[in-house]
Design a protein around this nucleic acid. Structure first.
Lengths: 220, 220
DNA sequence: GGAATTATTAAATAATCATTAAAAACCGCA
DNA sequence: TGCGGTTTTTAATGATTATTTAATAATTCC
């Protein structure tokens, strides 16, 4: 899915949906924060358009949650124009915002800008590494890399949160699903295998860097 | 299952379902993209009728996902007639589309056409292997291969979805039709017999490759 | 230099897949 | 129905691959 629209005004929702589809994006639209989250968790999205005024869970909360689940760019839609909101939205992780009533062309332009900046094509690329998340396939400089499932999960999580330092605990939790601060050996060993496959010179890793005393970080 | 209908308009859904059942197809109908995907993942389908306007996950997104899971032909149902939609749907993998309100006879004709093109007439070839789906006969480099019915079904399903990794669950459901405890064993044994007949060197299979932890994939 | 942390390596364990043989179910046919 | 052969399933065993554990070496920070 390209774009996830979270907007409870049904008129506006279908307007946006139609417009964006005509631009060639695949669009899913929901009318509540809860639905947005469950859809996002299950299927992800490449961009989220997020209304601030939502029944139940509001836009800021949704933004925060999505930010915890991934680096998907978020554009906030807001009728309220207070400085605090702008500040708040951006601080909490929104990549951009637009005020209602807005010029649809400006919105499209913003969206295109984000897609262009963010995605070369429909695969996730990092340097000479390409990751097909759906097919669970990784290639480096065109050559396919054989990945075990744990290795793939780990790589995926690192790249999805590139630039962020991830604690070992968080990494372990994300990939293995449970807290188990005792078995950090497992993680370091897997990091080792990953580096062996990903890095040009595994002895001096440039992608998977270790943050001493904290954990690891993916550098793009 | 022959046909999976994804349509949230319940009236239209039951109309379609009844009509197609009368034509002799086995039909399942769901009203959301999420349900469609979970059903497809588990049981597959030989044809999908897919409405574009769905609540939540939209038709295009569903189409995209199904395309990643298998080569099943998809017919899009749409009220909107924009060129962009047509383009989009076809680019994303739909084999055909039909506009609402549509003539049911035209739809039936399209469906029959797809079934005929896909599952009846000409012979399916993969390298030096030729499969006659109607006659249930397989030849390798001109020589006939004796196939049991299960072996044939399995081979057919693999080749129909060549290039795609098929989970054991999905393979079993497609060929055996039901879940079972010892499904794994039965499947692996049949894979073994198939390899014995198909592969030049059954010890190092190049056509039926195993995807560790997932299932199998046919490489053409 | 020394304690804490991370990297490396090898070996043990666990999970999954392949092979084989034998039992059970199936099928055509008298 | 019962027979003989074939297909399919089940079960037991062996092989392969993934993952974890454990022991040791290297590195980093103070």
């Amino acid at each position: 899915m390209d774009i996830l629209i979270v907007e409870d005004n049904s008129e506006l929702q279908s307007l946006l949906t139609d417009f964006l589809r005509k631009e060639g994006y695949t669009v899913s639209a929901v009318s509540s924060g809860e639905k947005a989250l469950s859809l996002y968790e299950k299927y992800g999205a490449r961009l989220v358009l997020l209304d601030i005024n939502l029944p139940g869970l509001d836009g800021f909360a949704v933004c925060e949650k999505i930010r915890k689940l991934g680096n998907t760019p978020i554009i906030m839609l807001t009728a309220r124009v207070s400085k605090e909101d702008k500040l708040n939205g951006i601080i909490l992780g929104a990549d951009d915002y637009i005020e209602k009533p807005y010029d649809i062309d400006i919105l499209i332009a913003k969206i295109k800008g984000i897609f262009k900046r963010r995605f070369a094509d429909d695969k996730l690329t990092e340097g000479d590494i390409t990751i097909d998340l759906a097919a669970e396939k990784v290639t480096k400089a065109g050559k396919p890399l054989e990945m075990t499932s744990k290795e793939f999960e780990l790589l995926k999580f690192l790249i999805e949160n590139k630039g962020q330092t991830l604690t070992k605990e968080r990494l372990f939790n994300a990939v293995w699903g449970i807290d188990s601060f005792s078995e950090q050996q497992t993680l370091t060993v897997h990091i080792k295998w990953l580096r062996e496959k990903i890095e040009n010179d595994p002895k001096t890793p440039v992608h998977i860097v270790t943050v001493w005393g904290k954990g690891y970080r993916w550098e793009g």
